[in-house]
Computed example of a mutant assay.
Amino acid sequence: MKTTLEKHLLSKPSVKKDFQEDWEAHRYLIGGKMFAMHVQDNKGAEILTLKLNPEQGQEVRERYEGKVVPGYYMNKSHWNSIYLAEKLPDESIKKMIDESYRLVVSGLSKKVQFEIAQS
């Protein structure tokens, strides 16, 4: 994965990165919940999977047809996988990262959201 995207993922408040051996995937977590996953698909292509609301996800898949697809091994309406070799603009990917982070944080308890806001 590009260094700039990795830095953007890790720049978010309270983000933790781990490696899920069963999936051979790097996960980016906030409050114990995943908001991004970096993995290779079954053909070895590098992908970044992010959460988006269903309407936004559908719009992104249509705009970047074949480059952004329904989430690889994830809920197909809420998760989207970006093929990183397909040269999407970094700014577009960063906006999707921001939205994924925001969506996952909004689903956390108010207490955890407060703690994240204070960090």
Rank of each mutant, 00 (worst) to 15 (best):
K87M: 13
L9K: 03
D22E: 15
R27L: 13
Y101T: 04
N42R: 05
I116R: 11
K111L: 07
D98L: 04
G44M: 13
I82R: 00
N53S: 07
R61I: 01
A85T: 06
E24S: 14
S109Y: 14
Y64K: 10
D98W: 03
E99L: 10
L103K: 02
L103I: 15
K43Y: 10
K111F: 10
L9T: 00
D18W: 05
G31I: 09
I30N: 11
F114N: 13
V104Q: 02
H78D: 12
L88P: 12
Y28L: 00
Y73P: 05
S14D: 14
Q40W: 06
G32C: 01
Y72T: 15
M74L: 15
V60L: 14
G57P: 05
L10N: 03
I93F: 00
W23E: 02
E46P: 02
N80Y: 15
G32Y: 09
Q40R: 11
G31Q: 07
M37Q: 04
E62A: 15
V68N: 08
M1C: 09
N80W: 06
Q113M: 06
I47S: 02
H38W: 01
F19V: 07
M96E: 05
L5V: 03
S106Y: 10
V60G: 08
S92I: 15
H26W: 12
Y83C: 03
A85R: 01
G107P: 14
T49W: 06
L50M: 03
L88E: 09
P70K: 01
K95W: 01
S11M: 02
S11P: 02
K87V: 08
S81Q: 13
K87S: 09
Y64R: 08
P54I: 12
L10F: 02
F19T: 09
K16L: 13
N53F: 12
V69W: 03
Y64H: 10
Y28H: 02
L48V: 01
D22F: 11
V39K: 06
L9D: 03
I82V: 02
D41A: 07
K33W: 07
E55C: 04
E46Y: 02
L9S: 06
S106G: 15
I97Q: 03
W23G: 01
M96C: 00
K43G: 09
G57H: 00
K7M: 01
R61G: 11
V69P: 01
S100W: 00
V104C: 01
K110L: 07
W23C: 08
H26Q: 07
Y28F: 14
M37P: 08
A25L: 08
A85C: 08
S11E: 00
G71R: 04
T4G: 01
